[in-house]
Design a binder for these strands. Structure first.
Lengths: 346, 346
DNA sequence: TTGTATGCGTTATCAA
DNA sequence: TTGATAACGCATACAA
């Protein structure tokens, strides 16, 4: 059974396909009221919907945007996906979601596939990788898109020239460290993400900056590089305890790490925030539910992602190539408290 | 700047576009080795990628599938999305993700948009709604797809004739109740999802079935209908306590509800499983991390979603219209224990 | 083994 | 105010 086409509608209405097209798209093109009625009636009667594949071929653009995520089942990316799909709908375009499973090879492949789909633009949601071939390919992709008037926007620094809607990762790392220092903590650990992810390394830099600024010495045994995951935080915290490190505060590079930390501390009957204060970056929904509720620098992912879609769809805006930096206010909850006494060495 | 087309490749290689097309798609069509080389060289040199919008128009199918989710930031749907995108990639198609925000109107609109995109099929991930206009429209959509040889598959019962990859919700509700009864519990509460969602009401039916089967009387004050959410579970548990209900076990219709329950109990210093056993349906990743780790009937969402993509892409299989019912084994963790004494009335 | 020509469903240009 | 027609990029039936 064949789909109903614009021609079917034209035949039923007794007009040309041109007229039908005009009635449907060119809302303000002058068409006789009577003709318009006939056409609309035929459209309804046949339950006609324009074929996007034909429109897209003709228009040299598809009505889709691409979203590249690393792990869509992680609420971090889920929130982004929610915002993107919602805002895309508002613009009347659909969202093609490409989940890489954290494999850069997949990511590169998706770029080509999205290109073939003539997406209006691509939103990158993961942090830039510190690998030459990856960056080269991405750079090439960006150029290709720029040459054709569409855009790749990133929600995390890629270390490349392109539009961003992001946060200041270094400043945020500094901010959460400052927060603990201001509470009187002096021995502060930092549990970071993967070293080769730009976002992660920036947050570490902020941590070090804060220490220096306050005249505190950086202790390498209190810095840990791992994954942005519960397990990584859990393991890192256990190690700190096992090695009997001296500290009273822990900065976590993201919420997931903090969740793991809280569990590890709980298992050892260490009071949070009584003995150790924990702070992180993110503010995922779970952070209000976890015990104790997490003090965290809020990354307004949802708003950022909405804005990223705007940048793609609203390319006319003068600021379309400028970077938008969102603030990351600290949300005070119950996982942090003024310093009383710390852990370790005594 | 124009995209490079098949014609550009043909020109550079000094052959016809037909030949180029054959080299690229029809891997086994006889083409002289020398010609093939020339074409491939030109393809590479021009960095040519076929235009999907043209292919799709020509093929009368697009290389996409649609996924309709209710709340993509919820790991329940996130896991489904992960599986779908992954499996879609395997088949060489992209995934259009449509998130409804739990608004049925959006869902219906997405059906039309996906139709216009000529998706190969649609995967429904939310449970069927008990509303006539919704079901009528969905029914119509299914018919439309059937008439054109593509498929709508559902991961949750819709109360309509269509292929399913799902679980037996009623049996699972019964199973978790049985589990608590077998542990010696007699007063068991059930905290359910929205009454008008088929999935939710089936789970309640299973609960009642189990009670009857064991000669236990159903106590309406121990049954609560709410949302599939943390907040809903939290509130429901608080109410049970506030009203001083007599019970020693709680069955939760999904994991999120159970998380809220655990927090409510913890806040009242009620021991789990010492005083109250908690069991649920789902087994999201967080369930192993929560304190205490949750005993839960495992819904193999990931595998189910993979299979759903197979049903769409592998329509040739004889079982393509049959329902696949996945088992929901109970994963024993620390939130359940044999009955000692319960709560309330005493 | 290769090429020519047609058509997929639209939109837009031009003419009437 | 309306309509005929070219063109978008590709795959395929048919011809050579």
């Amino acid at each position: 059974m064949a789909r109903v086409s614009i021609e079917d509608v034209a035949n039923l209405a007794g007009v040309s396909i041109t007229t039908v097209s005009r009635v449907i798209n060119n809302k303000d093109y002058p068409v006789a009221e009577k003709t318009k009625k006939k056409v609309l009636k035929a459209v309804k009667e046949l339950n006609y919907f324009p074929d996007f594949t034909a429109q897209n071929l003709r228009n040299n653009f598809s009505n889709t945007i691409g979203l590249i995520t690393r792990e869509i089942s992680d609420p971090y990316f889920g929130i982004i996906a929610r915002a993107v799909t919602e805002r895309a709908s508002y613009y009347g375009v659909l969202s093609i979601v490409c989940n890489t499973g954290r494999n850069p090879v997949n990511e590169l492949q998706y770029h080509d596939l999205l290109w073939q789909h003539k997406v209006r633009g691509i939103i990158l949601s993961g942090g830039g990788l510190d690998a030459d071939d990856y960056r080269d390919k991405l750079q090439e992709q960006i150029k290709r898109y720029n040459d054709h008037g569409n855009r790749i926007v990133s929600l995390a620094p890629q270390g490349l020239e392109m539009p961003y809607v992001t946060i200041d990762n270094r400043a945020t790392g500094e901010m959460i460290t400052d927060y603990l220092v201001d509470l009187g903590h002096r021995k502060i650990a930092f549990l970071g993400g993967p070293e080769q992810i730009y976002t992660a390394s920036e947050r570490v830099k902020g941590y070090k900056l804060s220490l220096t600024k306050h005249g505190l010495t950086f202790d390498p045994t209190l810095l840990h590089h791992g994954q942005f995951s519960w397990e990584s935080g859990y393991e890192a915290a256990r190690r700190l305890l096992l090695e009997n490190r001296e500290f009273s505060g822990i900065c976590c590079a993201n919420d997931d790490i903090a969740y793991g930390v809280l569990q590890a501390l709980k298992e050892q009957n260490i009071q949070v925030p009584g003995q150790v204060s924990v702070i992180s970056i993110g503010d995922l929904p779970l952070s209000t539910h976890i015990d104790p509720p997490l003090t965290t620098a809020q990354v307004p992912l949802y708003d950022m992602a909405l804005r990223a879609v705007d940048v793609i769809m609203d390319g006319s805006k003068p600021d379309h190539n400028a970077s938008l930096i969102f603030k990351t206010p600290i949300v005070k909850r119950l996982s942090t408290a003024p310093y009383i006494s710390g852990l370790g060495q005594g």
